[in-house]
Design a protein around this nucleic acid. Structure first.
Lengths: 145, 145
DNA sequence: ATAATAAAGGATAATATTGTCCTTTATTAT
DNA sequence: ATAATAAAGGACAATATTATCCTTTATTAT
């Protein structure tokens, strides 16, 4: 489904949203450890998410680290996927056809369309904050083993 | 979603199911042209699908080529994905967690589960023959450009 | 039997993705 | 101001995926 990079991105952002604040920033090592992702690869991903403060924010130096603003927490989970450059998936033909559309459909189109719409709707409506709140309940996890 | 290899596989099998029979086999060049896929890469994919006649069948030599039996046409579209080695997608966690389950869910699990179930159900119930019949109606296409 | 044909299979190349390391830059505390 | 810290960014390595080519094997028609 998603690339590893995007999987790490989603998990990292959920963790940051759960644990960080502008006062309480998180370091790379801590984040990579929490979601069990390769540290330096994760650094690249966080860099991408930080660019123009699209999703998360960061400050360098002592007591620096990554955090997310309350405003950004209202963004959708879909927006994380989009910043990672995989938004194409949300409207891609399941058979990989460039020109597949309502008017010019592949033989899976009509059946796949409602499923894809549900999928898009989930990612579009679910906010980062909602994910973080679920995490706070203690009955969900994001660490791989 | 799927790899290019699997996309080509799905389109190739649909085309073979639509146009071939044990009497009327299709050559590699014809297939690759029909779905507009790289010919030699497609050869590798057809090889995989032909192994043990899992999905399609083939004969070498003059008047040889690829075809599909009536029995195989009753197989699901999901089985094509599985032979291509991507069946994992049908029960994979959307955040890429190995241990994600009902008892031990990721924060997307509960919401994603019904969508994934619909997705699996579509691929599991849709047969190759049904796809081929849709193609025969003339209002669907599988050629990329 | 022989030649022609078409898939099977092996080897290799090109590209993309994933992962690591090292230097630079910004920030903070002293 | 200086030193320490932590992210940013560049370079590179490892692996996986995609794609191509060449030889071998099976099959058919002559």
């Amino acid at each position: 489904m998603f690339s590893k990079a995007t999987e790490y991105a989603l998990r990292a952002v959920i963790f940051i949203a759960q644990k960080s604040s502008e006062q309480q920033k998180l370091g790379l090592a801590e984040i990579a450890d929490a979601i069990h992702s390769p540290q330096f690869f994760t650094a690249k991903i966080l860099q991408k998410l930080t660019l123009h403060n699209q999703v998360i924010s960061s400050v360098r130096g002592p007591n620096g680290g990554f955090y997310i603003t309350d405003a950004a927490k209202q963004k959708s989970v879909k927006s994380i996927v989009e910043v990672m450059g995989e938004g194409e998936l949300f409207d891609k033909c399941v058979l990989g056809l460039n020109r597949c559309s309502e008017k010019n459909p592949c033989p899976m189109h009509d059946q796949y369309k409602p499923i894809r719409e549900d999928f898009v709707s989930l990612f579009d409506h679910q906010t980062i904050e909602e994910m973080a709140q679920e995490m706070n309940s203690g009955s969900f996890f994001i660490r791989n083993e």
